[in-house]
Amino acid sequence: MAKYRKKPVVIDAIQWTGKNLDECKLFTGDNFYGHVPDLREIIVKTSNGPYVVSANDYIIKGIQGEFYPCKPDIFAATYEAVTPSKPEEYAYKCSVCSRIIMSKKPQMVGELYCHRKPMIQKA
């Protein structure tokens, strides 16, 4: 029998605490099926039909957009938190005074000016 290793894939997930119903509804969208307040359970549509998610279970969004529940111990053994990467920033420099302006989005030539001259994107 051959052995296989799971590919490193980043997934989105949320833990159902029993108190964050709105967050879970927002996360699952049209796949939210129902809520059983007395049992602190929610029901989520999966590719295999509706599944019950108990308090402290995780709801995982798979790589094809599918949702499925996962028990906390399995989640902890399988996944680790990913540090979000820093958003890309663009630097623009004035050709006269060397002033630098940072922007979260790329600017078109002529959108940023200093000394009445367009600023140049810094490499």
Rank of each mutant, 00 (worst) to 15 (best):
M1C: 12
M1D: 08
K3L: 11
Y4H: 07
Y4F: 14
R5E: 13
R5S: 10
K6E: 01
K7P: 02
K7A: 12
P8E: 13
V9E: 05
V9A: 06
V9K: 02
V10K: 02
V10M: 06
A13C: 11
I14K: 10
I14R: 07
Q15D: 03
Q15P: 01
Q15H: 03
T17S: 15
G18R: 00
G18D: 05
N20L: 03
N20H: 04
N20S: 04
D22P: 05
D22C: 04
E23L: 10
C24F: 04
K25N: 10
L26R: 11
F32G: 00
Y33P: 00
Y33D: 10
Y33R: 04
G34V: 04
G34H: 10
H35R: 06
V36F: 14
P37V: 06
D38N: 12
D38R: 13
L39Q: 14
R40E: 13
R40I: 08
I42M: 01
I42H: 00
V44D: 01
V44F: 00
T46M: 02
T46R: 05
S47Q: 10
S47M: 07
G49Y: 05
G49Q: 12
G49I: 01
G49E: 08
G49M: 08
P50H: 06
P50K: 03
Y51W: 09
S54V: 06
A55K: 11
N56V: 10
N56F: 11
Y58E: 00
Y58H: 10
I59K: 00
I59F: 02
I59M: 07
I59N: 00
I60M: 04
I60V: 15
K61T: 02
K61W: 01
K61S: 03
G62M: 04
G62I: 13
I63R: 14
G65H: 07
P69W: 05
P69R: 03
C70A: 09
P72Q: 09
P72V: 09
D73P: 02
I74V: 14
F75I: 02
F75R: 00
A76F: 05
A76W: 03
A77T: 07
A77S: 12
A77L: 13
Y79I: 02
E80Q: 08
V82I: 09
T83D: 07
T83I: 08
T83K: 12
P84R: 10
S85W: 05
K86H: 12
K86F: 11
E88N: 12
E89I: 08
E89A: 09
E89D: 12
Y90I: 06
A91F: 13
Y92G: 09
K93M: 09
K93L: 09
S95L: 12
S95H: 06
V96H: 08
C97P: 04
S98M: 12
R99M: 15
I100H: 11
M102A: 08
S103I: 05
S103L: 08
K104L: 14
K104E: 15
K104A: 15
K105W: 11
P106V: 09
P106T: 15
V109T: 12
G110M: 07
E111P: 01
L112G: 00
C114G: 11
H115P: 01
R116W: 12
K117C: 05
K117D: 11
K117E: 15
K117N: 07
P118S: 03
P118E: 11
M119A: 02
M119F: 05
M119N: 01
M119K: 04
A123T: 09
